[in-house]
Write a protein that binds this DNA or RNA. Structure first.
Lengths: 352, 352
DNA sequence: TTGTAAGCGTTATCAA
DNA sequence: TTGATAACGCTTACAA
């Protein structure tokens, strides 16, 4: 005869095999909710019970299942971040700052790279949204319509959204921005060269069509030069290796009077390529050609002549973003943006 | 009088407010399981039904909840990766390759940085394990005992584990390794300098105490030099800015006969610092001092003289890791490691 | 081809 | 201070 309360023949759906809250509870001779409580608020549990739970935790090697926890609580500890390209040193530094800042606050970083493509950004956004992230971080303020809509929905639902690497409060975008105004940078780059007496200038833009920030610096650069009644042209570097792109671009600059006397570049690597090619053509930097980069990559300091450049707050952007998110989540308020300082570093390549 | 089947007064625990499967199902006039099925296997659902579901999906803006899905299915699409420092260009490239490879296979990347600290690695590992990741990626084969145990447990439970940036099949570690043998690299660096006629050599190690791979290259370097009856010493660079560390290290090399005629460095930035300082001291590279770096950072090609170095397969490691994981997960088998080719690039800084 | 029922591992709510 | 119960949103197993 079977006992009336016979155990079920076999669990229909065995889980992943790891210890669960119930397993710990059984060992500690309490119910699972008590263990759950101990984990979240140890002080509430009686010391004797706590002691047994601690032992049970150690014995079972319990690791809490986050998906179950999030599902039940509706709270998430995940921050999703969309980055153009992690191999670019500036973004690497930003992600490092973000990662450390979030980890310190007990949050996790779900990372996706967009390859500078708005379509991929939207796709990735849709994917990471499935994790119901506590906050969302994107790079820049240019998005596809679909992506903007997704971000707006998340924002409306109370999820902090931060756009990194931009800062344009005057545009009154709905999202917090942590970064700086690339137009300002472009104008400062122009002024720096104009002040050195140059009148015939060029901006060598990034070959990546969707590197909006580089384009923005370029547009502002050109506008500023023209306002000063100088001559400004824009060239676009080839895609692929930026050094080679810089070298090639040099040969498209024109000759004689058409040749600019100063060039601002979308980044230091491109500038470096230009510098190399100029040297190999016997053109002396900065006497015959002044060069200004962007990014303050390690290489610039070591070149001969050393490369003048703009140092963006790459690491600080990551740190400040993490900080803003932690604050916003703690307060239950939308994230607050901030403008971070960049720096124009005048070295030999633009000396008069 | 209340009807016996009165609806509950109010949902006790409102979720996150977004559309759920049930919402979509209601609009499409089917049950949620049919919608769930359509999402996973559209072909099984009748075309007319599918049409209604598509409309409902669009109308509701449904985004599936991944935690719920994972919890129910026991399957995960998350790959957890632990990286020493994302701001280092080599790891940035690796993560980029990993990210793209995983995204292509519909997996997500949960990223944590360990700051080269075994303790932090263990802590991070414990944290990411809570997400029941489909696979785990760590950097290197040196871990704390606790971390090793966690990895072994995961491995035993059928979760693919990959150690990136190392490859020592002869050690018969339980985990798959995707990378290369740093001992081989160290020996090749020694041979390169020995072949150029140097007999008094030094290895300038990384100041990061837990950069095991740099130490390993150094140990092999020294052993190889001594086997060839040369003289080899080891210096350790200061922590902090690697250029400055290289510069400082130069001044500790000794003078006269004690001074080595060739130095191999833990990375290109350190080597670059040494080169700068040597130049400022009037020492000619490579005639009086040969220099060999590691990493093939962009800067090396542009120095004067150009820096000889070892190019590690940074990006390929990420790609191959993603590929190995995707294959392993598809087959339900443990991941398989692979050795990837590095390259010693002889440039002017070690020319005879 | 579609539906019903049960359960994944946790937490919120309310009761004791 | 602890427990019982009902979710969270989805998928599996099985039935129709």
């Amino acid at each position: 005869m079977k006992s009336p309360a016979a155990p079920p023949a076999r669990r229909a759906r065995p889980g992943h095999g790891r210890a669960t809250l119930s397993d710990v509870a059984a060992v500690a001779e309490v119910t699972k909710i008590t263990v759950s409580r101990y984990l979240r608020e140890p002080a509430v549990v009686a010391e004797a019970t706590a002691e047994r739970i601690r032992a049970a935790l150690a014995e079972t090697g319990y690791v809490p299942n986050r998906q179950a926890g999030q599902l039940a609580s509706g709270r998430s500890r995940i921050v999703a971040a969309l980055i153009p390209n992690l191999a670019h040193s500036i973004f690497g530094e930003t992600v490092q700052g973000l990662s450390v800042g979030l980890q310190a606050a007990g949050m996790e970083l779900l990372l996706a790279s967009t390859g500078y493509s708005p379509e991929r950004e939207e796709e990735q956004l849709r994917t990471v949204l499935g994790w119901a992230p506590a906050a969302i971080v994107v790079t820049g303020r240019h998005h596809s319509d679909g992506a903007r809509r997704l971000l707006a929905d998340a924002h409306a639902a109370g999820t902090p959204v931060i756009e990194m690497w931009d800062h344009h409060p005057e545009e009154r975008t709905p999202f917090a921005q942590v970064g700086f105004d690339h137009g300002q940078v472009g104008r400062a780059m122009a002024r720096h060269l104009l002040d050195a007496g140059h009148r015939r200038l060029a901006y060598l833009d990034s070959g990546v069509a969707t590197d909006f920030r580089a384009h923005e610096r370029g547009a502002a650069f050109v506008a500023e030069v023209r306002r000063a009644r100088g001559h400004a042209s824009v060239l676009t570097a080839a895609t692929g290796d930026p050094f080679d792109a810089g070298r090639q671009a040099y040969d498209r600059l024109g000759a004689g009077d058409a040749m600019p006397s100063a060039i601002a570049c979308a980044n230091d690597h491109i500038a470096c390529g230009v510098l190399m090619q100029a040297r190999s053509r016997g053109v002396v930097v900065p006497r015959q050609l002044a060069l200004l980069g962007f990014g303050d990559f390690p290489i610039g300091r070591q070149l001969e002549p050393a490369l003048s450049t703009v140092r963006p707050p790459s690491h600080a952007i990551g740190e400040a973003t993490a900080q803003a998110l932690v604050t916003a989540l703690a307060a239950g308020a939308p994230a607050r943006g901030s403008a971070l300082a960049w720096q124009l570093i005048a070295r030999a390549s633009t000396a008069r």
